[in-house]
Amino acid sequence: MDQAMQTAAPPVPQPARKTKQNQGYWRRFGVFYLMMAPALIILLLNNYLPMIGSVIAFKNVNYQVGIWKSPWVGFQNFDYLFNASDAWKITRNTILYNAAFIFLNMVVGVAFALMFNAMRSRKAAKFHQTMMFLPYFLSWVIITYLVYGFLNPEIGMLNKTILPWFGAERTIDWYTEPKWWTVILPIVNTWKGIGYYAVFYLAAIIGIDQEYYEAATLDGASKWRQIWTITVPLIRPVIIVLTLLQIGRIFYADFGLFYQVTRNAGSLYDTTLVIDTYVYQGFIVTGDVGMSSAAGLYQAVIGFVLVLCSNLVIRRISKEDALF
């Protein structure tokens, strides 16, 4: 790729030849620009032009005079972020939850894949795979309904049926007690996403050359040993890359999970408020676009650094899988 760039780069001395060459270039590749045009326009609208809007973070917006004419306020909009006792909490929540999700997706995903691979009945394996994948297809809205069916304080499955079974003395107000959500959210997230990761890892496992196993069996290695000495080491690059890709996004939380599934209950904020919901909240509740843009910018900049770092690491491990 880089080579192609360099051969095309050197300037051509004679202007006459240059135009001729340019004409040839446009005749040959002009159509490419046409092909890319629709996507480029969409990118501009969705991504690039809004980037200009980041200046809102440095303004005290008054719509009546318009965004561009609103006064500049420097870093004042960021004040609240760093003065708040919450800023730390929100950052912590975002990162810890994502870390937990990444860890669970990896460990449970690999474990499930190994078990699928070990099952003797191909049919049974297929069936369970299918079932496990089902939650991945459901929207967060639907999952909110499902969770609500369990957690509804008055008539939910947990309070009305399951807790009494276990002889619990009191029922729990799930939507006002934040501590439970540090467990609920990882469970829900893993439940929804694990099908995807398990299948991914399974594909990598199946791709391993059978000869390795045959040789190991001849050597008398137990199945358990084969897993640790052959399977896991061989799929390690896939694990690492998939995990790093997620780490690059560790500063971005899944808005659907944190907004919908928690029903955006204020009393849960201690353990459920993450940057994405905070930005949305700031935008909607206080209506202060300056401050919520500031929070958004904070997220974007740190997110940017994190993606760069994880990409750097991926490049070291497997150049092909790096984004750039």
Partner: peptide, 8 residues
Amino acid sequence: LYNAGLVP
């Protein structure tokens, strides 16, 4: 890499 964010 870079996301302008919700408000813009």
